[in-house]
Amino acid sequence: MTDPKDKHPLYRGPGQGREEGRGPRPPRRDDRQGPRIPHRAERAAPRPPYGDVEGRQDDSWPAKPKEFRIYGLNACLAAFRARPESVRKLWLLESRIPKLQELLAFCVKNRIGYNVVENEDLEKLTASAHHEGVCLAMLPQPELNLSNWLMTAPTGRCLLLWLDGVGNPHNLGAIMRSAAHFGVAAILLPKTSSLSHSGAASRVAEGAAEHVPLIRLGRTDNAIAQLASAGFTLVSTVVRGGSDVFRSELPARCVMVMGAEQTGVDSDLLAASGLRVEVPGTGQVESLNVSAAAAVLLAEWRRQNSKA
């Protein structure tokens, strides 16, 4: 007996086209009718398990993590070599092709879009004249949670850097560069800090942003208690009224607290600090830029605590 559906003029079985010769119906793009077919660039690499800053996957999972743009030659090469699976698109000047052969070959192999553009295009893409001929769209590094980080923290000598009130991304980039050079294990950022991974910070960091993790803190009192339980001593930096850093014994497990240039370190952090230090100078200027001061302080900690 013939199936009645075979006689219906609108019935089409699996694999049949809507009209003769047209092939199967394309997938619906309306999310209510089914999942969106990902673009080939999205299929090029597995998506990382992003969650909130406490390490839990948030309610919007699997929402696509926000992309951001990294620019600068060293910053882009470091990001590509550390996290190739996070690369989403490449823009470059024709003059940069010889320096970026490895990155271009990766994009071709993994069907990741790239465009050779003019200098004016890169200035618009990066909002900077200091793009150095290359820009990458990438998934950001996840910020870490202090509790989780402390579970696998190094034992013995360890230096952390707490940035309290620092808000300039260029200062963050310069601090990251010094932090990577002198062996800082992580940079701590208050919950309310505007700082994060960004194109501007990454360019100034010259690749260091891939080597120094950022930890987003919760409540200040909880963070202080957790760090103390892990054997860390807070050392706050002040413009005046502190001990000469070059004559002070810096702890082996140290959290160096740097404040904003105008307001300094928060009073609660000062009260919780086991030591207050300053960088002595001629007095002809009030203080050093926060990134310059950080380099001096980190270098002195490393001098005192370097392994024989």
Rank of each mutant, 00 (worst) to 15 (best):
303 R>P: 00
90 L>P: 00
264 G>M: 05
59 D>G: 13
262 Q>T: 09
67 E>H: 14
244 D>Y: 06
236 S>Q: 04
187 I>Y: 05
65 P>L: 03
133 G>L: 08
200 A>I: 10
63 A>T: 02
135 C>P: 01
251 P>L: 10
207 G>L: 11
9 P>R: 11
71 Y>P: 00
187 I>E: 04
57 Q>T: 11
278 E>T: 04
53 V>N: 08
113 G>T: 09
49 P>M: 09
134 V>Y: 02
163 L>K: 09
290 V>K: 07
228 A>C: 02
234 L>Q: 04
63 A>P: 00
98 P>G: 12
69 R>C: 06
11 Y>K: 04
234 L>S: 07
3 D>T: 02
43 R>G: 01
130 H>I: 01
179 A>Q: 06
36 R>E: 07
59 D>T: 02
182 F>S: 11
53 V>T: 08
51 G>V: 11
258 M>S: 05
218 G>F: 09
58 D>I: 00
255 V>T: 12
128 S>H: 01
32 R>K: 05
304 Q>E: 05
282 T>C: 09
37 I>R: 09
153 A>E: 11
140 P>V: 12
36 R>Q: 08
140 P>T: 08
231 G>H: 02
165 G>N: 05
173 G>W: 06
182 F>D: 14
63 A>D: 06
152 T>W: 04
161 L>C: 12
55 G>V: 06
74 N>I: 01
109 K>Q: 15
115 N>A: 14
90 L>Q: 04
195 L>W: 14
81 R>L: 13
166 V>R: 02
304 Q>S: 04
82 A>W: 03
142 P>N: 05
95 S>G: 07
197 H>T: 09
110 N>P: 04
204 V>H: 05
236 S>A: 15
27 P>C: 08
220 T>M: 15
56 R>Y: 02
115 N>R: 15
240 R>P: 00
10 L>N: 04
295 A>Q: 10
61 W>C: 03
181 H>E: 07
122 L>T: 13
41 A>R: 15
113 G>Y: 10
290 V>Q: 07
155 T>H: 06
303 R>Q: 14
37 I>D: 06
301 W>E: 03
107 C>G: 11
168 N>C: 07
93 L>R: 11
2 T>E: 12
198 S>Y: 05
43 R>L: 15
20 E>F: 07
36 R>D: 02
37 I>G: 00
19 E>Q: 11
